[in-house]
């Protein structure tokens, strides 16, 4: 009974989340007294997983699996699961990993649970802690079934180095046929995404119009941060939907969240609750966001942001 980690890569390189999932997988496999097997698709630096304690690294290379698809990837994983006698599968909480996890649970008839925030509280019965109600609460949940699939929230488990001497293996598998074809991918290159960012700079209706976002982008650039916004800002088309964070938008679990001209409505707070440190900049001292903040500045964003940018630049 081993632990399998799906190690995600992008452009042939492992993503940071792969080190989180490997660290989590290693700790879990040690508790279970079992082996850690990492599986990656078309990735050139898989040997790095050894640093996090992999006992075996399965390398799946195929030009037919160049594009991620939940269906074809799941069918390959399900064959590894069977061959290696896997009892727990660990995934990150990226959009692709969650997409894959649910489908994989369907074809393997197994239990899947997402938004897990810590190592299991108990192994038998298998009880995990997860966030729910858009981070307004947590629950401890017992999961049953021979195969368990869990996806862990980003930044909820620390990356730990752990010497492994995993052999890299190529595997034989049967490809499933699928009518699903990716026809095109449009990406804003070089931009930090909300899901991967350590710092997120977010702004709301207080900014008055899309023409003022240059200062938000500049602040984000100085900090190496991703940009985000409140719901009305994306509804009005000031910013793309992909930047909308909150209960009905994206969740943010960054180390630092800077909220500028955002009032702090309950639906907004729900989505950013699991960010570690929150800074609020708002002209209204009564803005509800201050109650949820660690640090705050009461004042006009149009004065504060340019000044903050200058000071941060001077510090470098």
């Amino acid at each position: 009974m081993s632990v399998l980690v799906y190690s995600e890569s992008e452009n042939g390189k492992l993503k940071k989340s792969s080190f989180e999932t490997a660290s989590y997988g290693k700790a879990l496999s040690q508790e279970l007294g079992s082996k850690l097997i990492c599986v990656s698709f078309n990735c050139s630096d898989i040997e790095l997983l050894n640093k996090y304690g992999a006992d075996k690294i399965v390398n799946v290379e195929s030009s037919n699996l160049k594009d991620f698809t939940a269906k074809t990837y799941s069918h390959v994983l399900s064959q590894v699961i069977e061959k290696e006698n896997i009892s727990v599968v660990i995934l990150s909480s990226s959009a692709d990993a969650k997409y894959l996890g649910a489908y994989l649970a369907g074809i393997t008839d197994s239990s899947y649970i997402s938004n897990v925030v810590a190592l299991p509280e108990s192994l038998n019965p298998f009880i995990v802690r997860r966030s729910c109600f858009t981070n307004k609460a947590f629950s401890t949940t017992e999961i049953n079934g021979n195969l368990k699939i869990i996806s862990i929230s980003s930044n909820s488990y620390e990356i730990n180095e752990n010497n492994g001497d995993g052999v890299i293996e190529n595997i034989d598998y049967n490809e499933v046929s699928s009518t699903f074809k990716v026809s095109n991918v449009e990406k804003q290159s070089a931009k930090v995404t909300i899901a991967d960012a350590d710092i997120v700079v977010s702004a709301g209706r207080g900014l008055k119009g899309p023409e003022h976002w240059h200062m938000i982008e500049e602040l984000a650039e100085v900090l190496g941060a991703a940009t985000a916004c409140s719901k009305p800002v994306s509804d009005m088309g000031w910013r793309p939907h992909s930047e909308h964070v909150g209960q009905t938008g994206k969740p943010v679990a960054s180390n630092l969240y800077i909220a500028i001209g955002i009032s702090g409505a309950i639906q907004h707070l729900a989505g950013i609750n699991s960010s570690k440190v929150k800074v609020v900049i708002n002209s209204d001292p009564e803005a509800p966001f201050f109650k949820a903040a660690d640090y705050g500045v009461v004042g006009d964003a149009f004065d504060i942001i340019p000044e903050l940018i200058n000071k941060l630049k001077a510090r470098k």
């Binding site: 990226s94 959009a95 692709d96 699903f180 074809k181 990716v182 026809s183 095109n184 991918v185 449009e186 990406k187 804003q188 931009k191 995404t193 899901a195 991967d196 939907h241 992909s242």
Partner: peptide, 9 residues
């Protein structure tokens, strides 16, 4: 919607 972009299929 994918991380940082859109995938058409």
């Amino acid at each position: 919607e994918i991380s940082g972009g859109t995938e058409f299929s």
